[in-house]
Design a protein around this nucleic acid. Structure first.
Lengths: 242, 242
DNA sequence: CGGCAAGTTGAGCCAGGTCAACTCCGGTGG
DNA sequence: CCACCGGAGTTGACCTGGCTCAACTTGCCG
């Protein structure tokens, strides 16, 4: 499993890898599998080697939300997760993860500053990402959220064939749960971007971004790029909205 | 300034505190002050000793969002903040912060495992909190988001006079930006909770939670507690809503 | 090819956004 | 002491983006 090395593992010595394989537990997950919270208490740390894991929250009446996506290289550290925190981890795509025991993890991070740095940095990235995502959800319109998401995918995808090809790694439903909208709305927004020539849907999961600057401006909430302006007035007049 | 010790500082030795006071820079902020991003490049780490700092995102057309609140004891570590990350830090209440130089910070965390643990744990809390907040924003209704927020405040407030008194530490406007709604809606939701006898508004910033379980159920999206049920269904009358 | 999951399209409607007017309250100065 | 001021919060009336529900199409897998 270490052939598919995460950036974390590439910083480990042979001894540490040995140590890790003793105090760790590789698991492979199919789409829809959830990670048992009970077992997470003894193996609270996960390193994702492939696939996509989502942190899913359920509301009483069945509404679902995916609060975050975890992908290759992410370390999920659930120690001290508050009891009032109501998320569960679910595989959104067949995934390979490695569960780590806390003491081994602590041992390695204490002795290997490089590995520790990678983990810290990853955790900070997760924090920034979650906050950016909060900002997207709070005040952006559906189209803007989708535009933001396309950039998020672009930033995260490891090897991009071409810079303007973006792979959507999850189903429409999951995307909708992540962006706080309905699958129908997601679909309509994709169509809208396509109709305006900003993106091309090469397949269900591959999109080609034709007009990157325009998409950027939509993502940033620019009403002009967003198509909300009055077109008979040179483009700086705003229709509705204040 | 160390009299108002954060949990971080309480784990430091006298030597380390000396070191810290050489490589740090206390700043005091009034409401509305923003932290200059240019200066944050050389002092990218902040320890909050009092007050409230918000991570504010601005959209092109003026919409504002507060992605996260930072309060006493929080460590904001902005190293490696991506360039595409568009937030700025703003004081939402007069605040005392301490800026740290990265090398000092690194030195202390390397030599003092207890301090390192505190920081690490704080960062994880921030991550969880941001993800929980994302989940709130994504699919909850206005009333549910407000209920969630009241619990978030309750969990974070250090010394609670009584368990059912919750202090709202920010203005209505900031609260609205944080919850992704309009100040008008925030106001209406507070009134609604009060009219239903779930909370009491003792003053603008002090609320007494009268029915904690009901509020909890609203926060969790329970339609029944939420007053979203059909009225021929067991007796709690409810008007509009789906 | 049949069967099911995933995605799309259309029509109608409502939660919350928007705008404008109003109240409340603490501070300031005459 | 009261009149005035400005920022913060509230209230009401209206409007719309996106949710809802239902029907349809597409694509995948055996």
């Amino acid at each position: 499993m270490y052939s598919d090395a995460t950036s974390f593992c590439t910083h480990l010595s042979v001894d540490e890898l040995d140590l890790l394989s003793d105090g760790s537990k590789p698991v492979s997950l199919s789409r829809g599998d959830t990670l048992d919270n009970r077992e997470l208490e003894t193996w609270p740390i996960l390193a994702i080697s492939s696939g996509v894991i989502g942190m899913q929250h359920l509301l009483e009446d069945g509404r679902k939300t995916i609060a975050a996506f975890f992908m290759q290289g992410d370390i999920i550290d659930l120690r001290e997760m508050q009891s009032h925190h109501r998320g569960q981890l679910i595989a959104l795509k067949n995934a390979g993860v490695c569960r780590l025991a806390p003491q081994i993890f602590r041992q390695i991070t204490a002795s290997n500053p490089a590995a520790q740095n990678v983990i810290w940095s990853n955790l900070r990235q997760q924090t920034y990402r979650a906050m950016d995502h909060s900002a997207d959800l709070a005040k952006k319109h559906a189209l803007e959220k989708l535009a933001s998401f396309i950039f998020e995918c672009r930033n995260r995808q490891v090897m991009s064939f071409a810079k303007n090809i973006v792979v959507i790694p999850v189903r429409r439903v999951d995307l909708a749960e992540y962006l706080g909208m309905q699958p129908e709305t997601v679909s309509r927004c994709f169509k809208d971007l396509e109709a305006r020539g900003i993106i091309e849907l090469q397949s269900i999961s591959n999109i080609r971004v034709v007009q990157i600057p325009t998409l950027r401006r939509i993502a940033n909430g620019d009403r002009y790029a967003n198509g909300l302006v009055d077109d008979n007035d040179k483009g700086f007049k705003v229709l509705h909205f204040g």
